[in-house]
Write a protein that binds this DNA or RNA. Structure first.
Lengths: 208, 208
DNA sequence: ACTCTCAGCTTACAAGTGTACGCTAATTTA
DNA sequence: TAAATTAGCGTACACTTGTAAGCTGAGAGT
């Protein structure tokens, strides 16, 4: 094994170790460098050969999580394209994601409201991507004016993430209940924005 | 000053000290007993005369925050009763609360997704109260079936808290923008649930 | 083959942590 | 007034933390 390969491998070990430690209810800021090193099977000081800081590792993890989030979106689109209701399919995909990658989602959730401004910003950016893609999709599919679509997408993402937080600690049965409630709530928003646009048409006192 | 009075006073000092420390981006679990003692102006070991644990102090703080939340609801109702749109008034009241008691709301927000299962549960309970009261209000005011009202209330609270999180770190201008978006989104939900009920009436294939 | 590079190690230190133990001084009780 | 209670303090100890300094041995480059 070449030297570079070996280095990459330990780096991955460190990242995996960090995710491992996140599994058992902890924040990034509550994980010590020494713990990560221990879990990764290296000496504490060797950590510095790969990351300047725990902060640098943290941002790497957030990026990694963001990546997973984007893959999730792509998967949802694929499944929607091959049939099935948009809301139902999206929520199902999302819930499967949470169940399968709970530590990834937990990371995003925790750090979104967490202690470090840098992490908060990084997570917010990832969620913003998510929202942007959804509003593009809504505009494209439903032919809704831009500003309404943006509002709708933002509200939907907020609901999805908030429900996801609850689903994170739930068993299968409860998670199903959360799913179903979420789907109905998303439909409220969709219906609501349509009703709003309808009301504009009925008494067109504004522009556009 | 009697002995009991003095004790209560130091206890309040400890609580105030903890809130003070929460102000500068920190979690409960990231605050040490010694720091709290230092800030409260007592010896570290004296802390134990008042609380068994940092956890016990934490739960006390969450309770305190929940109390503030309930006062907020009462205030909103009073303001609604004395005129003004329900959604507008509620959101305005909420945003004022966040601006004035940012550390209280931050505490709830952080610990809701935080490290300690006990805190998470405690916060969830407070939010549940909030949701329950709102759904009661909706049932009473809008004459909407129970299950729809509950869904609507839950969705609204989710949006409000999520937007509140963003508002927490925003300046006045941005906070206003968040307020306005939130108001429109809440109206979507309201419109949506009404439209849903309407659709049930048009083709009544189900029971009630 | 000879040197260079550098991932990972060991050792070491100052700083901070929770909390056990026992003392003191002032209030409360009898 | 004498005895009992107790809020608060000081000291002490065993740990954990981040990271500085310097060494080693194996792969890379010539």
């Amino acid at each position: 094994m070449s030297r570079q390969e070996q280095k990459q491998k330990t780096r991955q070990n460190i990242i995996a170790a960090a995710f491992q430690l996140l599994n058992e209810n902890r924040t990034l800021s509550a994980i010590s460098l020494r713990e990560v090193a221990r879990e990764a099977g290296i000496a504490p000081t060797s950590f510095y050969r790969h990351f300047k800081d725990m902060d640098e590792l943290g941002l790497t993890l957030v990026d990694e999580a963001g990546l997973a989030l984007r893959q999730l979106m792509r998967q949802a689109r694929r499944r929607i394209a091959s049939g099935g209701g948009v809301i139902d399919t999206s929520v199902d995909t999302f819930m499967e994601f949470i169940a399968a990658n709970s530590n990834v989602f937990r990371l995003l959730l925790r750090e979104h409201t967490g202690t470090s401004a840098a992490y908060r910003l990084a997570v917010s950016r990832e969620i913003q991507h998510f929202t942007d893609e959804l509003s593009d999709y809504i505009i494209e599919q439903l032919r809704i004016p831009y500003d309404v679509a943006v509002l709708q997408a933002e509200a939907m993402v907020r609901l999805v993430f908030s429900a996801g937080a609850d689903a994170l600690e739930a068993d299968t049965i409860l998670r199903n209940a959360i799913s179903n409630r979420l789907k109905r709530q998303l439909r409220f928003i969709q219906l609501g924005s349509l009703a709003y646009l309808q009301s504009l048409q009925d008494k067109p006192s504004n522009n556009t």
